[in-house]
Write a protein that binds this DNA or RNA. Structure first.
Lengths: 150, 150
DNA sequence: TTGACTGCAAACGATTTGCAATTGC
DNA sequence: GCAATTGCAAATCGTTTGCAGTCAA
């Protein structure tokens, strides 16, 4: 998820990002930092294409495939999460504390929410028999208020 | 989800399907019944392409786009559910009682499981403020035992 | 300097669509 | 018979890839 942070927090996150890249052996390029910064700043969950459009003013020559490639790289290193929605386009967000998704079937908007009660609940026995579970997310579909009021 | 049913149960489900189609004003074509039957019989969650391959012996002339079209139609009428996985291909299953998904990051296999404790839990307040929630599914990612043992 | 990273353009795979022929009702 | 549905082929869309030039370390 991404929430508006203060300038100081933002800088701190960016520094952490740079450190994480260095530790992972990733070069810290202008494109990568800007993509990550966008994901930090933006409060929605943009697709690669949306992200690309928003980056163009700051990096007029950035290409869509670099956005895709960067997101894939960052995802491999756990710095970014890919959200699978029912539509064709994937959405992205910076990896954060556990949270869940409310997706509007009409406008396709994704809203994050927290539900600590669920995060801390024990998994059913069957999950342990199946294998090793790495992540657990609740996905709810419905119609958001702004859609149903229009 | 789909579990192996007895011949009688299967026939009963097929009859219900035919009735549901009629009620929805959908024509009951050979292709549609076979697609639905496959989804009832099959214990995994096939993609449109997999489904198409499995249907070919029974319907040698069925085309892949008919499978796509039929699945889309049935989904619109709530007879089939589209499962969004992290890979590119969508997976399908017949609509059933509430259940959740364990997805293996390695082999991409989808396993269903039931978790009534979660199904009956109250939604957090934020969900009510957001809008009307129609479905709630838990998606867990991990590595299944057969993958980690090989 | 050098390998990682980028931009470009072209390829790709999954899914959708227009159209004429076919089929259920 | 008529409208819905199908099969075919071509198009579309999101995403990925090969390659040559560029840039961070």
């Amino acid at each position: 998820m991404a929430t508006p942070y203060s300038r100081e927090q933002l800088e701190q996150f960016m520094e952490q990002f740079v450190t994480a890249c260095r530790n992972a052996g990733l070069k810290v390029t202008h494109q990568r930092t800007e993509i990550y910064r966008q994901l930090l700043v933006i409060t929605d969950h943009p697709s690669a294409e949306t992200l690309h459009k928003r980056l163009l003013p700051a990096l007029p020559s950035i290409s869509l495939d670099t956005v895709y490639r960067t997101l894939a790289t960052l995802e491999q290193h756990g710095l970014v999460t890919k959200i699978q929605t029912a539509e064709s386009q994937a959405r992205f967000e910076v990896a954060h504390q556990p949270h869940h998704h409310l997706i509007c079937s009409r406008c396709k908007g994704v809203m994050d929410f927290y539900w600590p009660a669920i995060d801390s609940v024990d998994l059913p026995a069957i999950a342990g028999q199946w294998g090793q579970v790495d992540s657990k997310t609740i996905v709810m579909y419905g119609i958001c208020n702004s859609c149903s009021n229009s």
